[in-house]
């Protein structure tokens, strides 16, 4: 092969790899975008597909946390002060999870409209605020959650 041809083959191989990579990226990417919704958006039916993984954020309503006696399932209500949604989660809640504080749960909606969380993330902030708003406050308030 002449150098020119070699170069051509090389570029061809490289671009094939790139195309394959981009196709994989695109497919997987679309499956794994986790959209964030407020309880109001969920209650009003703004969530497109019931089976998709989503995040819901709000504050944990006081006295709403119920532990089941026979297993490690825990239920609580997340509210954005307008609407509320019931969340079920099996497992250990994070250290910073507290009633009356902000929380983000990741999971899916079940057929009754309850939220089955596979992951619960709690943030350390003193506000009675939905997390989107609390996030913004955190930015301006210079609150520190975790160093690196």
């Amino acid at each position: 092969m002449k150098p020119r041809q070699k170069r051509f083959v090389l570029i061809l191989i490289a671009s094939c790899l790139l195309v394959v990579a981009s196709v994989i990226v695109k497919n997987v990417f679309n499956d794994n975008l986790v959209f964030f919704y407020s309880p109001t958006e969920i209650v009003s039916g703004d969530v497109p597909q019931k089976k998709k993984l989503i995040r819901v954020g709000g504050m944990v309503v006081r006295d709403s946390v119920v532990r089941h006696q026979d297993n490690t399932t825990v239920s609580f209500i997340v509210s954005d002060n307008v609407n509320a949604i019931k969340v079920h989660y099996e497992g250990i809640l994070p250290d910073l999870f507290r009633e009356g504080k902000g929380v983000v749960a990741q999971g899916k909606l079940d057929q009754h409209g309850d939220f089955m969380a596979s992951q619960v993330l709690a943030k350390h902030d003193e506000n009675y605020m939905p997390p989107e708003v609390a996030d913004l406050l955190e930015r301006s308030k210079d609150q520190k959650i975790l160093g690196d």
Binding site: S38, D80, N81, V82, Y128, M129, V133
Partner: peptide, 13 residues
């Protein structure tokens, strides 16, 4: 009860 607040689209306080 937050009834008026809903009309205003209040998001949080």
């Amino acid at each position: 009860k937050g009834v008026v607040a809903i009309d205003f689209g209040v998001y949080g306080v």
